[in-house]
Design a protein around this nucleic acid. Structure first.
Lengths: 338, 338
DNA sequence: CTGAAAGCGCTTACAG
DNA sequence: CTGAAAGCGCTTACAG
């Protein structure tokens, strides 16, 4: 029965303590940055950790601390819908990065189908997760309700609407963003400005429509609004419809960049010159915005910042702070499509 | 000091035991399906669980059992590259589903960048995960090496190549699939068959090239091979190149469906009729295969089955079985492009 | 500054 | 069939 650092099983804190010649309490204190550890002990522990390849068992640690040390990125959307949406990857990577800075880890949980929802909730209920970031492009907030009921710290990405369960959220200012874009279009001398709107159940979608209407004021004409679905295809279809019904339009506010890209393609296919004949503005400022010729004038959503604030607020909440809600401004990025 | 089922903290097994009027040992036995529990006790426990809303703490359970109860789906690819690749979503959903059937949960871990790799490895080393499914479209197997060294049960999706660390894997038969496709093209009377190959570092890519060459035998002409990158764009470019260099080709084997879709578009843009002037075959049978007109003849990869076998083999390995390697046949799906 | 001890919430031989 | 007890690997008051 030797000290056998590695005989198949993972080294424990006892192995480290033995190798360092101190008690495991001291090892723990040395590792967790507590004061009250002599330089000698600190050195010995560090050497022993290196020698044994010790990593604290997260299960044991979490059990004692009543903290799992990880949060879920819960995706309330079918995985396939996420494909082709560059926002998602950016948001997710941003969250993963800022979580890592706080030495917490992120796990992605799928909640697109009812089945997946049940599974995710089950997993969360098991104590493996300290909190959840809920991301969904459409309004189906039953998961949020369940999470609330279970008392899990949760933060939502986007603006919930009236009637949705009350939670923390972080969002870009959809209303103001839409206003800025339409005002930009107006400043370009455009008079007949159509909109290819977000799908009706999109989170924050009605705010963009409202901003559009508000900025237009007396010029507003509801018949100039057609609904898209946030895809390139939808943008094409929307533009075609708009052109057919209102041959006189000279600008279009597209609900997002993907939509704008499709709209540009369709307009060009119809023989229109963008922006000379028709200006087209988008929303997001993701890779789609520079995938077209001309490149798209758009409202930049601060995705990385959103992700950062989302993790900050969530962690505060895990630490007992009350829920909070944060709205971030968007910024006009002028390119060649307007 | 009442029994207080819910006073903020989660109910524990002690709460259930108290409510059911039995010991916690009995509760545990009742919940884990052990024999040797009287019907009365079983009923009492079930009622108490319902009443308290008890869910076993996974941390405590895992600590005792030396089992985390979850596996990682480790993605060795930049998240952005995954977007636009329908295979990935299918594989991931398949894995998630079959894992759920074994009441294990799946967490997605990103390992696209060096940073993410380090973080993922760190997380895994912490004991929160019982095993990992490693998915990567390109050859950079250093993660596999680290996983092996750490003694983490791991299964790879795709065929590692000589020199890669030895592990379990599940793969579609790339070699045979390529042979089948080329033979199909030959059976259509095609003589000059080009190939838009997978990128050179693609997992299993060289096998598809080898199958192409082998099926062609004496007809093989290496100058008819151009390299793509598994994207639609790459398919377009490849086709254009092929057409420019070899105006006489009458068929193309595209490395995957995305490539085939791009190739069809490019061929048509050049005034070719598919399949009359030129037959184009793909590989995968995902949504891209039916996104074009004509729809694409392709080799179906059994993604769901791959995912299922991947989880089965991984779990066996977690349970102490030795590593294993499984190759699944692909199936020719004839559509209109050949 | 450090060690011994208790306890986080489970499961499972071990007695009965 | 069931309860009491030990122990999984940690952290943190509590004494010293």
């Amino acid at each position: 029965m030797t000290t056998s650092p590695t005989n198949g099983r993972r080294p424990t804190i006892d192995d480290v303590a033995r190798a360092a010649g101190v008690s495991k309490g001291t090892v723990s204190r040395a590792l967790n940055g507590h004061r009250w550890v002599s330089p000698d002990a600190q050195r010995a522990v560090e050497a022993a950790v290196k020698q044994t390849g010790y990593r604290a068992n997260a299960l044991a640690r979490g059990l004692k601390l009543q903290r799992a040390g990880s949060v879920a990125f819960l995706l309330g959307e079918d995985l396939d819908h996420m494909f082709g949406d560059p926002n998602f990857a950016t948001l997710m990577r941003g969250a993963s990065d800022s979580l890592a800075e706080m030495s917490m880890s992120m796990v992605l949980l799928l909640a697109g189908s009812a089945d997946e929802q049940a599974r995710a909730l089950d997993f969360i209920g098991t104590g493996t997760i300290d909190g959840v970031m809920f991301v969904s492009w459409h309004h189906d907030m039953s998961v949020l309700t369940d999470l609330n009921r279970a008392g899990i710290p949760t933060i939502f990405c986007g603006t919930p609407r009236a009637g949705d369960p009350m939670t923390s959220f972080v969002t870009a200012d959809d209303l103001d963003g839409a206003i800025q874009m339409v005002e930009h279009l107006l400043s370009r001398g455009r008079k007949r400005i159509g909109m290819i709107a977000p799908p009706k159940d999109a989170v924050g979608g009605s705010l963009r429509v409202e901003g559009y209407l508000r900025a237009l004021g007396d010029l507003a004409d509801e018949s100039l609004i057609v609904y898209g679905d946030y895809t390139r295809e939808g943008g094409r279809a929307g533009m075609l419809k708009l052109l057919a019904q209102h041959p006189d339009i000279d600008a279009v506010f597209a609900a997002n960049d993907l939509t704008a890209a499709g709209a540009i393609e369709a307009a060009q296919a119809e023989g229109k010159v963008v922006p000379d004949d028709i200006s087209i503005g988008g929303f997001d400022d993701n890779s789609a915005a520079t995938s077209t010729v001309p490149a798209i004038t758009t409202m930049r959503q601060p995705f990385i910042r959103l992700a950062k604030e989302m993790t900050r607020l969530l962690i505060d909440q895990i630490n007992g702070e009350p829920p909070a809600q944060l709205t971030l401004r968007t910024e006009l990025v002028v390119r060649d499509s307007t």
